[in-house]
Design a protein around this nucleic acid. Sequence first.
DNA 1: CCACGTATGTCAAGATACTGACATGATGAT
DNA 2: ATCATCATGTCAGTATCTTGACATACGTGG
Lengths: 147, 147
Amino acid sequence: MMIEKEPAEVEQLGLLIKETQSLLNQRMDEVLRPLGLSVAQYACLHTLRSAPGVTGSELARRVFVSRQSMSVLLQGLEKRGLVERSQEPGPRRERAAELTEEAAELTEAADGRVRGVVSTMAGDLVGDEPERLLVLLGSCRDALQGD
Amino acid sequence: MMIEKEPAEVEQLGLLIKETQSLLNQRMDEVLRPLGLSVAQYACLHTLRSAPGVTGSELARRVFVSRQSMSVLLQGLEKRGLVERSQEPGPRRERAAELTEEAAELTEAADGRVRGVVSTMAGDLVGDEPERLLVLLGSCRDALQGD
DNA sequence: CCACGTATGTCAAGATACTGACATGATGAT
DNA sequence: ATCATCATGTCAGTATCTTGACATACGTGG
């Protein structure tokens, strides 16, 4: 006979994820705001650094926002001289986006601060616990999007 | 000499949390929308059911939104007959909020659907893994808000 | 060759959440 | 007793994200 986990605790998992993400977003905003960056802008720059030349739509998918939001995000970053987009559209009307020199410095500074926040968050985890957390959360993510 | 964890993996923890929460919110919206409820409204009703009679401000803190957002949320729920608020303000101008009968049924139905989503999310976790995940994530949350 | 489906980029409108500000009522220090 | 302080509830303005819609461009099947 299978021993069923009482669902009372697992039920709190959704709330806990929301809570943690809310706090994480808040802390990231606090350290990024002095640099003049919103969390969404940081996510955009961070992703662009690891994947230069991607299209706006692909960027939107990776950052989990709509194409439209990414469009205005990129326009703002372009106006601030942090991002350059090819003026001559590519194969499918695509406009590849890349970081500028100034953005590289800024993104590195922002990355440092975000690393600090994440270190704080994982500060009480010891041994293989960080890795365990990554695996378990990854399982949840896959189960949700695999649908 | 301490063996330092390479931070390359832990660094992804922030992104993973954001990703998982985004997908969870999306799935919850999909199951709650047919009931005419937004995720925020569900969170409001769910919290009210476990803590009837709380004030709007306290409710806002528990649901992680501002007092102002909770104010308009409650106005909408009140207009739909799901929530009743005491008209005669209490000790500190407080207006205690409670669920109506109709809301109790609706909230129960919504809870069932949300339980389904959470079960899907935790579907691949076995043994003590759900509990482990709760403990590890709880540690992260405490580290973020303990600051 | 040409219509159809699909993907990108953008504009406009609606919804939602936040910050700032104010009035009201309770608490505490002097 | 009086005034400063704080918490609640609400209104207004701002910012951001989303959905809907349209124009453009590539690919495929008729």
